[in-house]
Amino acid sequence: MKRVMTGALIAGFVGIAGVGSATAAQPSHEQNTRRDCRTYSSATECGQPQLNEKQRACVTSSVQQGMTERRAVVECKAFA
């Protein structure tokens, strides 16, 4: 009987700890989703970045060469 109770307590504790961890991780994921963040080539941009003329030309050229627009915006903002 003692072993059954101990096992139930351990299982309950593990279950509670697991739920707490998942709940703690969830808000940061929701925050990033709302901000529309993306990372390419170690550069992160959130939302719709404002690009100068040179960066817009870089995006256009990169998209014509087959890169996705989202990736081109991040990379051109960071490196052009």
Rank of each mutant, 00 (worst) to 15 (best):
E45W: 03
V19L: 15
C46H: 02
D36W: 14
F79R: 08
A57W: 04
T33S: 11
E45H: 04
S42M: 08
V63I: 07
V19T: 13
N32C: 05
T39K: 02
R38Y: 13
Q55R: 07
S62R: 11
T23V: 14
I16R: 00
S41L: 05
Q50D: 14
Q50M: 10
G18V: 09
C37Q: 04
V63A: 03
S21H: 11
G15E: 03
H29N: 06
N32L: 14
V73I: 12
R35G: 02
C76D: 06
T68S: 14
V4Y: 02
C76G: 08
V59P: 00
P27R: 03
C46V: 05
T39R: 11
S28A: 12
V14M: 14
A43R: 03
G20E: 01
E45S: 11
S21L: 15
S42F: 08
G66P: 01
A22L: 15
E45T: 07
A72E: 09
V74T: 12
T60M: 02
V59D: 06
T60L: 10
L51H: 05
D36N: 14
Q55C: 06
T23E: 04
T60R: 08
A22Y: 15
C37T: 07
Y40H: 12
V14N: 02
A17L: 13
Q65P: 01
V63R: 00
T6H: 03
A43C: 09
A11N: 00
P27I: 03
V19P: 12
R38F: 13
K77L: 09
Q26E: 07
F13D: 02
F13A: 15
G47A: 11
A22M: 15
T23C: 07
A11K: 00
T39A: 04
S28Y: 14
S61Q: 13
G7R: 05
T6M: 09
C37N: 03
P49L: 07
R38P: 01
Q65W: 03
